[in-house]
Design a protein around this nucleic acid. Structure first.
Length: 116
DNA sequence: AAGCTGACTATGG
DNA sequence: GCCATAGCCAGCT
C-alpha cells in the first residue's frame, strides 16, 4: 500500500526529471508546460518543488532551463549562487536581461511538440 | 495533527 | 495592466 503510494509520488517526480533532462541546451521550458505534460496541469508549483528536490537526485537535472511562463528566472535564488542560473543559460547561448530570457517565445521548448 | 508555505498559473475585476 | 483569488499537492512546523 504505502509502496503503491510511494511509486505514485516517484512517478510524478520521475516524470518531471525525465522531461527536464531532455531539454536541449540553449532551450528553455516552463513549470506549467511540464506540469501539463506530467498530467497535473495545475501542479506547476510541484514542478518547482521537484526542482528543489532534484539536488538529491542521482543524475544532474538542468533546472536552470526551467523558468516561469513570463521567461523570468524565478528559481535563481535556489541555486548555490543566485547568478548561477543566468550564467548557465548564457553559457548555452541564451541572452538574459534583467532576469528575463530574451526571445523566450522562440527558445521555448514545448514537451508536447518536441517530445511527443 | 492541522495548517502554512511555495522555483506557478489562469482567471476575474 | 496590475491586484486578488483560487487550484494544485508535497514537505515542513
Amino acid at each position: 500500500m504505502s509502496q503503491q503510494k510511494r511509486s505514485v509520488n516517484e512517478s510524478f517526480f520521475q516524470r518531471v526529471y525525465e522531461v527536464v533532462k531532455q531539454i536541449p541546451p540553449g532551450r528553455v521550458t516552463t513549470y506549467g508546460a511540464i506540469a501539463r505534460f506530467t498530467g497535473s496541469p495545475q501542479a506547476s508549483r510541484m514542478v518547482g518543488w521537484a526542482m528543489n528536490a532534484s539536488h538529491s537526485y542521482s543524475e544532474a537535472i538542468p533546472a536552470h532551463r526551467v523558468i516561469n511562463r513570463n521567461g523570468l528566472l524565478t528559481g535563481k535564488n535556489h541555486f548555490r549562487h543566485p547568478r548561477m542560473m543566468q550564467e548557465l543559460l548564457e553559457s548555452e547561448g541564451i541572452r538574459v536581461e534583467d532576469d528575463r530570457v530574451v526571445d523566450f517565445s522562440e527558445l521555448f521548448w514545448d514537451p508536447y511538440k518536441e517530445l511527443i
